[in-house]
């Protein structure tokens, strides 16, 4: 009976290897599909026209993606300007300056909020933030600013939670050494703890950045989606992701291919970010 229930170990190992290769296979298939659909049209109309063209008129075969590239980068930058100071400050406060009880209670609460779907953030932006901007700052309300704020709030839980983990990973002996030398708590944090946790913090920020640049539905709801270079923080803007989502439902032929080309550009930007995140994370573990 024993030998019957003992399947061949090598066969199991081989099947597990096949299973384990799923993720990398899916990654390869995604890459091939997006490039297969998007690259030919980019080459046909010229890479330069795609990346630096300012006019997006798919019906007239004009596929300039520059407004969307700038749009994606602008709202992501805006999201970081809001999310990073708030996130880092919260993480530093909760790890170094608050009572243990408070941080024990608040960290799970913040992580719970990370699970709120992005459409919900977009909806609340549409209901509260957009009218507020329209009435108090001018413009249509649907704007770079609105998208930046919503994305900044959306990436907060990610940045806070990863920063807390990497600050907590700094050994206590570092802090004790610094305090023993007569440094104040803040000097210790600024000169010892933060530099030691730096690569973890950077990895968290890059992860938040990836989330912001990849977000679609929340941005569509608050950004206004005009395919023009935004003239100010209060002007509407369209991102790469929204460009795909807005037009995919009815696009066909070269128009659809151009949307996949948008996907190619987005994909390349994300891969560069991933590479940087990996680099930062490796630095941390190699310390």
């Amino acid at each position: 009976m024993m030998s019957k229930s003992k399947p061949d170990d090598r066969l199991i190992k081989l099947s597990l290897l096949m299973v384990a290769l799923t993720a990398i296979t899916v990654l390869a298939v995604i890459t091939i599909f997006i490039f297969e659909q998007g690259l030919p049209i980019m080459l046909k109309y010229g890479l330069k026209n795609f990346l630096f063209g300012q006019d997006w008129y798919p019906s007239e075969k004009s596929f300039g993606l520059l407004p969307m590239i700038v749009g994606s980068l602008l709202v992501t930058l805006g999201a970081l300007l809001i999310g990073v100071p708030l996130g880092l400050a919260s993480a530093i406060f909760l790890t170094e300056f608050s009572s243990r009880r408070l941080s024990r209670f608040l960290k799970p609460v913040i992580e719970l909020l990370a699970g709120i779907p992005s459409v919900v953030y977009g909806f609340l932006g549409l209901m509260f933030l957009v009218p507020f901007i329209r009435e108090n700052l001018g413009g249509p309300g649907l704007s770079v600013l609105a998208a930046s704020i919503i994305l900044g709030i959306m990436i907060l839980p990610t940045i806070i939670s990863i920063s807390i983990d990497s600050i907590r990973a700094v050994p206590d002996s570092y802090r004790e050494g610094s305090i023993a030398l007569g440094a104040t708590k803040w000097q210790t944090v600024r000169m010892v703890v933060l530099p030691a946790a730096r690569s973890g913090l950077v990895a968290g920020i890059i992860l938040g950045m990836g989330r912001a640049i990849g977000e679609t539905m929340a941005v569509i709801m608050v950004a206004g989606n005009a395919a023009d270079l935004p003239a100010s923080w209060l002007a509407p803007v369209r991102t790469l992701t929204s460009n795909i989502a807005l037009e995919m439902a009815y696009a066909s032929g070269e128009h659809r291919q151009a949307l996949f080309a948008t996907g190619v550009v987005l994909f390349v930007i994300i891969m560069i970010l991933n590479f940087l995140a990996n680099l930062a994370a490796r630095k941390q573990s190699g310390r």
Partner: peptide, 25 residues
């Protein structure tokens, strides 16, 4: 390393790209 690399990259791909992939495949 290859398997982990695949999983990490997959984790960073935005959902709209998964949407395009699922639509095609």
């Amino acid at each position: 390393r290859i398997i982990r690399f695949g999983a990490e990259c997959l984790a960073g791909i935005p959902s709209i790209i998964f949407g395009l992939f699922g639509f095609i495949l």
